[in-house]
Design a protein around this nucleic acid. Structure first.
Ligand code: FES
Ligand code: FES
Lengths: 151, 151
DNA sequence: ATAATAAAAGATAAAAAACTCTTTTATTAT
DNA sequence: ATAATAAAAGAGTTTTTTATCTTTTATTAT
């Protein structure tokens, strides 16, 4: 039988958000962060995380430098990215567009039975992830009251 | 590279919700609904849907009868089940308990950076799926303004 | 009793997601 | 120039999810 574990985002996306927050924190003073440090700091498998970072880099959500003293870092404009930007880069915009019950199209014309119930929920969810930028997190997290790993 | 398609529920769970709504509609007058009809009516692969129905049946969310004139059906008490009951049966209670960023524990003591932001969203989501019973859908859907398939 | 029906169960198969290992490329410092 | 570093890219493997096919069991009607 099946044992599904279904969370809001894909594992890749979870890692991506954690990594972005992690690097944002360290990027405050021109520091670069290596993939090993990122993986450790976020409880993610190193090589898998590397792929995700490459992806985020390709999509211009983060900067990277090769060679000694290289690593990942963010500039001021990178810090303006929101959780939504990360989610869109990794999981795509399915939470924006897709029908909750998997109909081919989510529309007001052909709504599934739960369309209107979920409309409001989705609106709030989207608003939240769009309003929360990495810069905003940076401030909040300086208090040290939040965690990216716990074992 | 990856192209994730991440929706709120697993495919199994989407099918389960659709099937439950489908059977609820047909169960109004002691009708039994065969697996073929359910699969067709919900755009789901027949044998896969069969597994899901067995699962729902084992978990007492729906009744079934073998043999001629057999099929799936609901009694009054089955109609009291909510979307939440279906989700819990198929996807488990991860949306209740799990950390959005995948920390081992979701807690106020060790909150991840998005914990408090998502708290409210999750609360609304849970409230919604708990408040929407199949019986409630049945009334609403009689208007014929909702769809379980569209191709 | 027998045949027909339909769900239940079992066993694979295909596809997607998650994860690992190896090689290459760019950069820096010696 | 050379060696060391670290990201990028390539090429897998493993696990989970989704889907299909086959056999069995229970029920009904003849
Ligand atoms: S049609 Fe299903 S959520 Fe819009
Ligand atoms: S700790 Fe992450 S959502 Fe609660």
């Amino acid at each position: 039988m099946f044992q599904q574990i279904k969370t809001m985002f894909s594992k890749s996306c979870e890692y991506a958000i954690k990594a972005m927050i992690f690097v944002a924190q360290k990027s405050k003073e021109e520091q670069r962060v290596g993939i090993k440090e990122i993986a450790k700091g976020t409880d993610a498998p190193e090589h898998f995380m590397a792929k995700i970072m490459q992806d985020l880099s390709r999509r211009k959500l983060i900067h990277s430098a090769k060679g000694p003293n290289g690593g990942f870092y963010m500039d001021a404009s990178d810090l303006k990215n929101s959780i939504a930007d990360i989610v869109k880069a990794i999981d795509g915009d399915t939470i924006y567009k897709d029908c909750v019950l998997g109909l081919k199209e989510c529309s007001e014309k052909n709504p599934c039975p739960v369309h209107f119930e979920f409309k409001e929920i989705k609106k709030n969810l989207i608003k939240m992830i769009e309003n929360n930028t990495l810069a905003a997190f940076n401030e909040k997290l300086d208090s040290g009251k939040f965690f990216l790993r716990n074992k």
